[in-house]
Amino acid sequence: MARFALNRILWTLPVFWLVITVTFVLIQVTPGSPWDAFNAANGGRLSPDLRPTWEREHGLDKPVAQQYVNYIVNSARFQFGESYTQQGQTVSQRIMEGFPYSARIGIYALVLAAVIGVPLGVIAALKQNTMVDYVSLFFATVGATVPSFVIGFFMLAFFGVRLNWVPILWTDWRNYILPVVVLGIGTSAFIARLTRASILEITRQDYVRTARAKGLPERTVTIRHILRNGLIPVVTIMGPALAALITGTIIIENVFGVPGMGYLYIQSIGARDYPVIMGTTLFYTFFIVLGNMLVDLTYGVLDPRIKAS
């Protein structure tokens, strides 16, 4: 197990290296120098005399290869430099400003998704090929297919504009409701599909038949044998689902004007604030790769056959 885990953890390194390299190369090929971007972000009013000093401060006077090595080392230490647009603020500070909002929305959405998705999937599986199954399957397909930002605009139009229940612009806690619901619906559909498939597989297992043959009451069979085993894969995807939700908020935060990490990300793209763009990209990547790694590791623990392949 330890070897499998170590192997899996080591394999995330090339991914990080690739992301760091791609972002570095992209900054290099972007038209205009970092100074131009910095100047533009400050309204283009900076004197060219400042340029050599500024470039020396940011290590831009060194050869490209040296810059690349520094970039990797700094990225590994989560040091992404200073924001171009917010004077004196580091990229990490910028990220941490928005992260709590994104994390809160992600966690609430996951809880909502589990509360809706798990029962829906269980009921659909236990009542397979009945009306209940078809309705929940249809809901799951639609919920997983319709893009969250489309659902978001429909909800904003109805609850925000028509009914005026929630504020359109970011004001207070009521603004959390719609983004959480929108993200929760998409994820609940995904969870419902997974739960249904997993439970259906378990109900066909021999040990379930044995339990029934022993004459155990149906309730006991369902709870102790089917649910307990059928929900394992559902539990294991919660970690990656949270990682996906926190990054999935990039678009939703812009729909609802949430001042989170995704909103700052897009703002910094508009302002060509490259250190923030690259830092946030790596931060997001870290979450996604970590989530994927966790699911592999938990599956490895639960199902030893996976390690072999």
């Binding site: 995330t12 090339p14 991914v15 690739l18 992301v19 791609v22 972002t23 992209l26 990054t247 990039i250 990300y265 793209i269 763009i277 690259m278 990209t281 997001y284 990547t285 996604i288 790769v289 994927n292």
Partner: peptide, 13 residues
């Protein structure tokens, strides 16, 4: 390695 690369982020960058 490419599979693990988050595609939406790549598109954005």
């Amino acid at each position: 390695v490419v599979y693990a690369f988050p595609s939406l982020l790549f598109f954005i960058v």
